[in-house]
Deep mutational scan, measured.
Amino acid sequence: MEQGTVKWFNAEKGSGFIERENGDDVFVHFSAIQGDGFKSLDEGQAVTFDVEEGQRGPQAANVQKA
Rank of each mutant, 00 (worst) to 15 (best):
17 F>S: 03
20 R>W: 08
33 I>F: 06
55 Q>P: 15
66 A>Y: 12
64 Q>N: 11
55 Q>C: 15
33 I>K: 00
13 K>S: 10
58 P>T: 09
30 F>V: 07
13 K>R: 11
13 K>M: 10
14 G>Q: 03
57 G>A: 05
24 D>F: 11
16 G>C: 06
40 S>C: 14
37 G>N: 06
35 G>E: 09
62 N>G: 04
9 F>A: 00
58 P>L: 11
52 E>L: 13
7 K>M: 03
6 V>F: 02
35 G>C: 11
66 A>P: 07
60 A>G: 03
66 A>F: 12
22 N>S: 10
65 K>V: 13
21 E>L: 12
33 I>P: 03
56 R>Y: 15
63 V>S: 03
28 V>G: 03
38 F>K: 06
1 M>C: 12
63 V>C: 04
13 K>Y: 08
30 F>E: 01
57 G>Y: 07
1 M>V: 12
30 F>W: 14
56 R>F: 15
48 T>A: 06
58 P>A: 08
61 A>W: 06
61 A>C: 11
10 N>M: 04
6 V>G: 04
55 Q>K: 14
39 K>V: 07
56 R>L: 10
29 H>A: 03
62 N>H: 08
48 T>V: 10
29 H>M: 05
52 E>Q: 12
11 A>D: 05
11 A>G: 08
42 D>R: 15
19 E>L: 14
1 M>G: 12
27 F>C: 07
18 I>E: 01
58 P>I: 09
7 K>G: 01
22 N>V: 10
52 E>C: 14
63 V>Y: 01
6 V>W: 00
48 T>L: 12
16 G>V: 03
15 S>R: 11
5 T>V: 14
18 I>H: 00
42 D>G: 10
28 V>C: 08
7 K>N: 01
9 F>Y: 09
34 Q>S: 10
40 S>Y: 12
35 G>D: 08
18 I>Q: 03
9 F>H: 01
36 D>E: 12
51 V>C: 07
4 G>T: 01
45 Q>W: 10
9 F>R: 01
2 E>L: 14
37 G>Y: 06
2 E>R: 09
40 S>W: 14
65 K>Q: 09
41 L>K: 00
61 A>S: 11
42 D>E: 14
64 Q>V: 12
12 E>K: 15
15 S>Q: 15
42 D>F: 15
43 E>K: 15
22 N>T: 10
41 L>G: 04
26 V>H: 01
64 Q>M: 11
22 N>W: 10
13 K>F: 08
16 G>K: 00
9 F>I: 00
35 G>S: 10
57 G>M: 05
26 V>S: 02
60 A>L: 01
25 D>A: 09
54 G>Q: 07
10 N>S: 10
29 H>I: 05
24 D>P: 15
43 E>N: 12
49 F>P: 02
3 Q>H: 14
5 T>Y: 13
59 Q>V: 11
28 V>F: 12
7 K>R: 10
39 K>M: 07
38 F>G: 06
56 R>T: 08
23 G>Q: 08
59 Q>H: 09
63 V>H: 03
32 A>W: 04
45 Q>F: 05
56 R>S: 10
65 K>G: 08
33 I>L: 07
10 N>Y: 03
53 E>L: 13
3 Q>N: 12
21 E>S: 12
63 V>M: 02
44 G>N: 05
44 G>T: 03
15 S>M: 15
14 G>P: 00
38 F>W: 14
60 A>V: 02
50 D>R: 14
57 G>D: 01
50 D>K: 13
19 E>M: 15
35 G>N: 07
54 G>C: 10
28 V>S: 01
13 K>E: 07
59 Q>C: 08
40 S>Q: 08
14 G>V: 02
26 V>W: 03
41 L>C: 05
36 D>T: 13
37 G>R: 03
34 Q>L: 13
44 G>R: 06
3 Q>D: 06
23 G>Y: 05
65 K>Y: 10
21 E>V: 12
55 Q>M: 12
37 G>A: 07
1 M>F: 11
51 V>I: 15
31 S>I: 04
25 D>E: 09
52 E>P: 01
